[in-house]
Amino acid sequence: MKNNKWNLWKTARLPLLLSLLLSLFTCKTTDLEIIENIDLNQLADTVNKFSDLADKTEQQEMDFGNEVAQILLTDSRILNNDELQLYVNSVGQWLVQNSERPNLTWRFIVLDDKSFNAFAAPGGYIFITAGTLLRLNSEAELAGVLAHEMSHVLKRHYLKALQKQTKLDLASDIGILAYQLNSARKEDYSSETEDNIELAEKVSAAVDDLYTNGLAREDEENADSMAVIITARAGYDPYAYIAVIQKIASEKPDSTAWLSFMQRHPPASDRLTTLEPLMDKVFAEAENYQTVTARYQKSIR
């Protein structure tokens, strides 16, 4: 059995292995453990190399995320309330401890904005508006929203969508993405060839497009079901997340932005329907979970 697996490893080409490893990236830790179980000394070197590459890619992902986060902040201001920022980071970091990527440098950022909104950037940047915090009732609901956004990072949804749109290869080109984005933002093409200018603008346009139109339906549904699980792992009432989606479903459609957005996305009502089998299957008897309403109310006022 061991030999068969070793042969598989040996015959597979390095890029293939690498992309396999990267595609399994969300479970990086566990995957590497599995590999280590199979491997003996011969494989150790290879694994270390992969591991280094994975770390390098992770760093690139964070660099890229930093660029994207800066673009997102060209409009929005960070809420000037340190206590509240720390509170949201505490909830977020507790969720991180219950996720598959605790080693990313996660940042949870409250924006000075009244709308009902939250989004993420690759590498661990999670944004939530102050308006969202005002609409929520409990820490468990906040945890649900943060966990949903975290899921996009855990599964690299934004990164994969950008990769698809720009036709760049994830394994080798995240660094290029970040660099191009930086150039596009600064309109600093002095040392660039025309090809690179084109690429930079393509990446920049893809980012705009993605954050305007949102992610694919299945990414959203995936993030919904992951959010419920992560929330529950951390000890929060998973049904609080259902209440959040019910709130989203009840928001009045009062702008053209909302309309164009909704044309491309599943209504919140459908998201509830999609979550129903999961809730029935895993949380039919949801006990010993906390809602943490008092601390939340105290913290956001």
Binding site: K114, S115, E251
Partner: peptide
């Protein structure tokens, strides 16, 4: 300390995009 507001813009989907 909330100084900004988007007023007319309500991305009602919450948990995802920007306008």
């Amino acid at each position: 300390l909330l100084t900004q507001g988007t007023g007319s813009v309500t991305v009602a989907t919450g948990v995802r995009g920007l306008s």
